[in-house]
């Protein structure tokens, strides 16, 4: 959300190229593990690295479109909302990300707006 941006504490976590295209990397943080994804179109998303099903590490899944397939039981999770693809139900917390000059900034306050 544009308005809250100023209050958020952005932390730099690396460069876009550090994440493989259609891939993900893990960021360890005091708030727990966060998965940072890169789509074919270089969009960057961040979700808690915990599948809403049984906690599978989403950072290890296969990224396609704007979705990731969980490595444990193949639930698909929307990267932009954190929601499981219907008919599965559940959601992984979203973390705000910004890309400036090829650098990725993450906010450790999960985004509660949908």
């Amino acid at each position: 959300m544009q308005t809250t941006n100023n209050q958020q504490n952005w932390v730099e976590v690396g460069r876009i190229e550090d994440i493989p295209l259609l891939g993900a990397r893990l960021v360890k943080s005091p708030k727990g593990d966060i998965a940072v994804f890169r789509t074919q179109g270089d969009e960057i998303f961040a979700l808690r690295d915990k599948c809403p099903h049984k906690g599978g590490p989403l950072s290890q899944g296969i990224v396609h479109g704007k979705k990731v397939a969980c490595p444990l039981h193949d639930w698909k999770i929307h990267l932009d909302t954190g929601l499981a693809v219907a008919p599965d139900e559940g959601c992984a917390a979203r973390f705000p990300v910004e890309v400036r000059d090829g650098l990725i900034y993450l906010s450790l306050e999960p985004d509660s707006s949908r």
Binding site: V13, G14, D18, L26, V27, S29, L108
Partner: peptide
């Protein structure tokens, strides 16, 4: 095999 970043 490595996290991209470890924040503290």
């Amino acid at each position: 095999y490595k996290p991209m970043a470890i924040l503290s």
